[in-house]
Amino acid sequence: MSGLQDMARQSARGLGFLALVALVGGALALAEPRFLSAASLNGIARHMAANGLAALGLTFVVIVRKFDLSISGVAAFTAMSMGAVIAAGAPLWLAVAAGIAIGAVIGLISGTAISRFGLPDIVTTIAVGSICAGLAFLYTGGRSIFQNFFQVGITDLNDARLLGLGVSLWILLAVYAVAWFVMHRTRTGMAFYATGENQVAAHFSGIATRRYIALAYVMCAICTVLAVLLILAESGNAETNKGANLMMPAYAGVFLGAAILGGTSVLATLGGILLITMLLDGFSLMGVPYYYSDGVISLILLAGVLAFSDTARGYLAGLVAVRALRRARSGGKA
């Protein structure tokens, strides 16, 4: 019985979300007809790929009930590291491997500090992020790296197409498919969720909770590296401010998705990031200056978590109840 109710509630939320996407898309298309052009849709797919990968990484961390504010710093450092490897003449795969390795080590450091030594997550990741942002200047003192970028073929990640869709979108879909399967169809996923929702009970159930928390930070850093890789592919060079714009959309995607679709999950993040990217690209197409983008995302994030918060729902229910009561009273009088 309640299983059916549950499914009904889930599908209602899903339908509501699709309606929201259609509404936002329609409104943007009305305001700016170019929104539905092939170039614009391609752009959305590309930006969604980078934003979506970073948001997916954050999703793991949020599922174990922690925060990661080092995304921008990790992005800057790994961008410059990959750039330096490419500039040294190494093949692309080596640069990617180096980036992922560095990201994994940073994630492991933050994750271990937080899970094993009990440091507070927010401040620890801010500190780690700051150190990484400083380390990004090690290679060139802050100058842009672009040598060998063209020869090494990194731009193909941005330009090449497969079955009519950009490679970056395929990367996004592949990573999300794997993540969805792992988080929602395997024991590993159950262990992640159990760790987040009750760490003690998970430990008593034989789950290595500290390892999962550390793993979440490692996954977050690796996803950030993948996101940065796509950004490097798009711009064709590495700079220390690459990835500075990854953090806000990631937070907005995770929390907006969770608010609309009823809980943090891989699909909710995908939905959240789709909405955010549509809005961002739509606005930039309409000529809204770049500096409004953070503000727009922030507003959407706030509005989203506020509208779907328990307190707001409580107020709403109260309002409905009061109305019903009034109606009943006036009906009684009449």
Binding site: M248, Y251, G295, S298, V305
Partner: peptide
Amino acid sequence: MRLPALIVTISTAGL
């Protein structure tokens, strides 16, 4: 509204 302080202040910071 009892929203988490980090999410709230990240958003207002962006704004």
